[in-house]
C-alpha cells in the first residue's frame, strides 16, 4: 500500500497548502461585512479545476492498482512479464501525441486555425496508433504464453494497460467533442481552453503510463523492496 499512501501524501500536501490560504485561524464570529475573496488572485476556470480533481481521482485509481500489484509481489512466486519491444515504441507514440496536443494549444493561442486542426488530427491519430499498438502488444504476449488467466503479473499487465487504454479512449471522445464544436464554430481562440484541457489530460495519462512502465519493468522494484524492508 506504499504507492497509494505516497500518492495521498502528495495530495495532502496540496490540500494542506490550499487550506493554509483559507485563513483557518481567523475568527469568523468577530468579522462582519463582505471581505475580499481569498482566491480572487488566481481564478482557475471551473472546468480546469474539475479536470484537476478528476485527474486526482484517476491518479488514485492507478496508484491503487500499483499498490495491488506490489502487494501481490510478496504473495506469490513473482515473475515479471517480459515486455515486447513494441511497448517502447508505443510509449514514444503516446509521447508524440502529447506533444501534438501541446502544439494544438499553442496554435489555438495564436489563432492559427489550420495548424490547430492538423495538430489535433495528428494527436488523435497518434493516440489511436498507441491504442492499436497496445492491443498488438497484448496479442504478442498472449501468443508467447503470457495469457490473461495465467500468472498474476501477466493478469496485472492486461488489467492495468486495459484500464489505461480505456481512459485514453475516453479522452479521445472528449477530444472529438471539442473538434465537433470547432468544426461548427471555427474560431481557434474560443477553443483554446478546451484544447488546453485535452492537452493536460494527455500529459497526465502519459505521466501515469511512464510510472506504470517503471512498475512493469521492475525499475521501481528495488526502491519498493527498500520500502518494504523498512515496514517489515
Amino acid at each position: 500500500m506504499n504507492i497509494i499512501l505516497a500518492f495521498l501524501a502528495v495530495l495532502v500536501a496540496i490540500i494542506g497548502w490550499w487550506l493554509s490560504r483559507q485563513r483557518l485561524f481567523s475568527k469568523p464570529w468577530l468579522e462582519t461585512g463582505v471581505p475580499p475573496m481569498i482566491a480572487e488572485a488566481s481564478p482557475v476556470a471551473p472546468q480546469k479545476l474539475g479536470l484537476g480533481v478528476f485527474l486526482a481521482v484517476i491518479g488514485g485509481l492507478f496508484a491503487m492498482l500499483g499498490s495491488a500489484f506490489v502487494l501481490q509481489i510478496d504473495a506469490t512466486p513473482w515473475q515479471l512479464v517480459p515486455l515486447p519491444r513494441l511497448v517502447w515504441i508505443n510509449t514514444g507514440v503516446l509521447l508524440s501525441s502529447s506533444l501534438f496536443l501541446q502544439f494544438a494549444v499553442t496554435a489555438a493561442k495564436q489563432g492559427e486555425a489550420q495548424l490547430l486542426n492538423w495538430s489535433l488530427a495528428a494527436g488523435a491519430l497518434s493516440t489511436l496508433a498507441f491504442l492499436v499498438g497496445q492491443i498488438t502488444a497484448w496479442n504478442m504476449l498472449t501468443t508467447s504464453g503470457y495469457v490473461l488467466a495465467g500468472a498474476p503479473a501477466a493478469s496485472f499487465f492486461y488489467l492495468i494497460t486495459g484500464l489505461h487504454g480505456l481512459h485514453i479512449l475516453g479522452g479521445l471522445v472528449a477530444m472529438g467533442a471539442v473538434w465537433l464544436r470547432l468544426a461548427r464554430q471555427p474560431e481557434p481562440r474560443e477553443a483554446q481552453a478546451a484544447v488546453a484541457l485535452c492537452a493536460l489530460y494527455w500529459h497526465a495519462l502519459l505521466l501515469i503510463w511512464i510510472l506504470l512502465l517503471a512498475l512493469f519493468t521492475g525499475w521501481g522494484n528495488e526502491f519498493l523492496a527498500l520500502c518494504r524492508s523498512v515496514l517489515r
Binding site: 468577530l30 468579522e31 461585512g33 471581505p35 475573496m37 481564478p43
Partner: peptide, 16 residues
C-alpha cells in the same frame, strides 16, 4: 461583535 468590520460601501470582490 464585529471586531473586524469590512466597510459596507467597499468595492465588492468579483465572483469566481
Amino acid at each position: 461583535m464585529g471586531d473586524i468590520r469590512h466597510e459596507a460601501n467597499a468595492e465588492l470582490p468579483p465572483l469566481e
